[in-house]
Design a protein around this nucleic acid. Structure first.
Lengths: 146, 146
DNA sequence: AATGGCTGTAATTTCAATGGTTACATTAGA
DNA sequence: TCTAATGTAACCATTGAAATTACAGCCATT
């Protein structure tokens, strides 16, 4: 399985907002064009980002603005806003191991902390990257083109 | 999304084999009983573990044996054997960003290395745990029960 | 060499999640 | 009021996970 593309789409959205905000009106249609998907998909993701308090969205007139500085929004914030992982658990544990089996009874106690540690390693890395890194990286790439 | 329960099932299988190998004949039916699933699910997973070279399986008579020492099989080996992640990519990237958009054209170059780093952080942690840790942990838990 | 118990695997079903799409009500600025 | 947005419900197609049935193939034991 894979983490939903909603995550990379959200990062794409933030990058577009940053790059184009002075030049264009960045609407869900505009974003759908860059990302090559349906505007409704974009709106659903934006709704999630809004609920997580990462952006404000102007109804009627359109327009997206961040609620914090670029450096204050990490990949982890986006990952969480998007609900990238069900129930907050990266690993799907088999539902009902047999409690009458010595191993079945104890398998959760055996594995849970290890699985958490593995997930934490990933999420800690997610916290290392911010939207400011995206601006920096994109500015560099665009400069290289010319 | 979540990583398939085939991963935790595989770890459960290894633990059972280790705990019960002298006491019972550990067949796919036996394992299905402890894990509380269908024997065919177990066999499919065992087939994957065999293809990855982690176990040998005796046809006809039944029986599972590891090809290496417990300390030489890591969680990562199991994760990989199971094909826990499609194409080896943890993150599903949106398929076709618009190449005519400056952001769309460069979004992969911008994100790919960061996504890889995040996935690597998780996989490196996976490599830290071995089946020997499972034996140790389970022995401890079983001792506590008495 | 026949049998019984096990593995290997194909085929099918159910279920849930993703991603896409249409349609329309709601909003707010011009 | 008109226009261009967003918000959201409803629906569909596709995919993958997990479960299940069925049966062929294998092999130690008798």
């Amino acid at each position: 399985m894979q983490i939903s593309s909603r995550f990379t789409i959200a990062l794409h959205i933030f990058t577009c907002v940053d790059v184009f905000k002075d030049e264009y009106k960045v609407t869900s249609d505009f974003l759908a064009g860059s990302i090559n998907t349906n505007p409704v998909i974009i709106r659903k993701i934006l709704t999630q980002l809004k609920k997580a308090g990462l952006v404000n969205i102007a109804r009627g007139t359109g327009g997206i603005e961040l609620t914090r500085d670029l450096s204050e929004i990490t990949f982890y914030d986006v990952y969480e806003a998007i609900g990238a992982v069900e129930n907050g658990d990266l690993f799907h544990f088999h539902e009902s191991p047999n409690p009458e089996c010595p191993v079945g009874k104890n398998i959760h106690a055996l594995l849970d902390d290890k699985l958490k540690a593995i997930q934490n390693a990933m999420e800690d890395e997610l916290r290392k990257y911010t939207l400011l890194d995206l601006r920096g990286g994109m500015t560099e790439l665009l400069a290289k083109e010319n």
